[in-house]
Design a protein around this nucleic acid. Sequence first.
DNA 1: TATTATATGATAGTTATTATTTTTTAGATT
DNA 2: AATCTAAAAAATAATAACTATCATATAATA
Lengths: 146, 146
Amino acid sequence: MADPKMRFDTIVKNLRENNYKLTPQRLAIVKILSRSEGHPSVEKIYEYLQDDFPTMSLATVYRNVMLMKSLGEVLEIGFPDGSNRYDGNKPDPHPHVICVQCKKIIDPDLSTLKDMTEEVANETGFKILTHRLDFFGICRDCTNNR
Amino acid sequence: MADPKMRFDTIVKNLRENNYKLTPQRLAIVKILSRSEGHPSVEKIYEYLQDDFPTMSLATVYRNVMLMKSLGEVLEIGFPDGSNRYDGNKPDPHPHVICVQCKKIIDPDLSTLKDMTEEVANETGFKILTHRLDFFGICRDCTNNR
DNA sequence: TATTATATGATAGTTATTATTTTTTAGATT
DNA sequence: AATCTAAAAAATAATAACTATCATATAATA
């Protein structure tokens, strides 16, 4: 896990360089994303912020998460049900292991994983922009608690 | 690509064994899925069937695609925008290369791909049920035509 | 502190999907 | 072959997650 403080500074720097305004709401969202504990959903980020910003609109969270995504500062993890979760702590593509029951997301260390992007580009003629490698299953907790 | 006729027969056999009724609508949907040319969406399947079944409901396509999915006879390919495409010709998990512009989906031959499922299971304690490996980029056609 | 482009909050709209209800029908049974 | 019944289809309402719109507020700057 990257240091949340450093990620926060990096993202704020990126925002500054692109002349985005640093509103309190935006910074609060960035702060949560820079840690991204538990790979939060937009809804979850919104909930976290209810204490400090009781009048904040859900749309503001959506707008800001999308902005960070467009700046390459958050990785979107799409669920089969259409919902999304976000990682602003490790924004580059990396594998996930997802519990289909409790929706927990883990970042495994896959020592044998080699980058196949170049091979795919060569074989298909595509310019590869990104990729995803996600495993779905039942975590130990969910297996035991039943 | 598997022989569509054989896939059709396999799926119909599965339906029979589980006592699902073989309605004309269902069989028509299965026929399209067993070929899955271009990895169709539900909407696309619905369009294909307008000629033969002008009164068919979109919900019927959804219900049947979901049924085939629950029987393990189709693979769902989720797009970042939340929409889904389906493959009933090769229903087991396999990598995809997806053009983010024209939405074309290609199945590449990745010689170096080894199955990491066991490694992930060992490292995380998850019971892995399925996985996905998808590359996103711009295809050759879309690169040239602009 | 005045200006202005941008961001926010409130809310309406959209899209893909799922649920509900009534009608129809496949396949079994007489 | 006619009847029966659970399952499926059609029509449509409801939902969830997101996206657009617009009036108001505010961060950055001059």
